[in-house]
Simulated scan of single mutants.
Amino acid sequence: MTVMEQRGAYRPAPPPAWQPRTDPAPLLPDPEPHRVLGTPRAAGTDPALLRRLYAETVKGRRYNAQATALTKQGRLAVYPSSTGQEACEIAAALVLEERDWLFPSYRDTLAVIARGVDPVAALSLLRGDWHTGYDPRTHRVAPLSTPLATQLPHAVGLAHAARLKGDDVVALALVGDGGTSEGDFHEALNFAAVWRAPVVFLVQNNGFAISVPLDKQTAAPSLAHKAVGYGMPGRLVDGNDAAAVHEVLTDAVRRAREGGGPTLVEAITYRMEAHTNADDATRYRGDAEIEAWRDHDPVLLLERELEARGLLDEAARTAAREAAEALAADLRARMNADVVLDPTDLFAHVYAEPTPQLRAQEALLRAELAAEHEGAPE
């Protein structure tokens, strides 16, 4: 008891009865990941959608393999393969309307390509070029984000601004499980929920943040449960089930477009290959773990469903593989062509209006290049 209380000058009022502002029950994810393929729910899935998901995942698998080979040939500086995660990548791109925006992380090259970006341009950043390789406004695809989760607040800001302007736009932001440990993730979810921004967050939980397993990152029952703390729904989906991911994301995008606010979707998937070509995955996981996921491969799940429904014959299978090989061949041919570099690009786009110092430096470089050219043997 304080001195003021002893003197009778202070009488604390009892706290008012606390009432939760939001019933958490509707926000909680299902106890098991949502699945479609291989279940009775698959009967209601559009056959044309299943065929397209299959064709795109087959192409994505081949693209991953070709890009990985290009790193070994020195044509790419680094490539974070998404082999095993193709269902998430393709479904994320296909659920968006042309007017919507995609905010990818560094591993989401397949989603960028499925959105319509040139396959070679999508690799510019990973090739070590000084720019992202494509015009984000043309394709409504933000640059591949190498820093973890920094694209998430950008997605919220764009979605919120679009709503203030009256534009019918939804932003879909992709992030890995490692990104959920970053401050940007929490800030983005908080802002999105408070502003009821039309944005969907897709967490591709592949089990590892490089080499850090999920249980070393969080003690939450699932990453989808984190949504409740911000006041948005959390959804849990089988990330290798392309039809299920497409269904859950379609619902989330529709909800956002109708003014329902953001949704956090956690897709349970697995990275079959190393974090990047610079990673030695054998240091933190064994072959048995990888083999356990092979029977749940996203391409295999689609093949089984299509075959069971009589939607995949040998001609269709061959057509998908040939399209994938054509993509890989075009990628090889164009990536193996040496890039013509202009040293003066060093001064381009530094400032909207170049400073006098920058102009002087550029003039000096041009003079040196001209002198070297004049002195070069014929």
Rank of each mutant, 00 (worst) to 15 (best):
A224G: 03
G310Q: 05
P233G: 07
T344L: 15
E305H: 04
R257W: 07
D280V: 12
E289L: 13
T276I: 07
A323F: 10
G261L: 13
A308T: 07
G286C: 02
R283Y: 09
R334G: 04
A316T: 00
P343M: 13
F347M: 06
K226R: 15
V340K: 05
D238S: 07
D238I: 04
Y270Q: 02
R334A: 08
L223C: 06
E289H: 02
D330L: 03
R257Y: 07
G261F: 12
D287I: 13
A328D: 02
H296V: 12
L312C: 06
D295L: 09
E305D: 05
L331M: 04
R283P: 01
G260H: 06
A243M: 06
N336W: 06
H246K: 08
T263F: 04
P343A: 12
M232N: 03
T269F: 09
G310L: 08
D295T: 12
T318V: 03
N277F: 01
M335W: 08
E258P: 03
A292K: 07
R304H: 06
L311Q: 04
R235F: 01
E325S: 06
G310C: 04
H225W: 12
D287Y: 08
E307I: 10
P298C: 07
T318Y: 00
L331I: 03
P233Q: 09
P298L: 10
V299T: 09
D313M: 03
D313E: 03
A244Q: 11
D279W: 11
R304I: 02
L301V: 04
Y351P: 00
V248Q: 04
R332F: 07
T344S: 14
D338T: 07
A227M: 13
L341P: 00
G259P: 06
V248I: 13
T263A: 10
D279E: 10
R254K: 13
N336K: 11
L264Y: 08
D313R: 04
G259Y: 08
D338I: 01
R257K: 10
P262F: 12
P343D: 13
L341T: 05
A244D: 10
A281K: 14
L264N: 02
E291A: 14
K226W: 06
R254T: 14
R255N: 14
A252D: 03
P298D: 07
P233F: 10
R304L: 05
R285I: 03
F347T: 03
V248M: 07
A316F: 01
E247N: 01
Y351N: 05
R254I: 00
L311C: 00
L341R: 11
L341D: 01
A256R: 10
A227T: 11
H225M: 00
W293N: 04
L346W: 15
L236I: 06
V339K: 08
N277T: 15
A252K: 06
R254D: 14
V253L: 09
E247Y: 01
G259T: 10
E314V: 02
L264H: 04
R321D: 11
A320N: 04
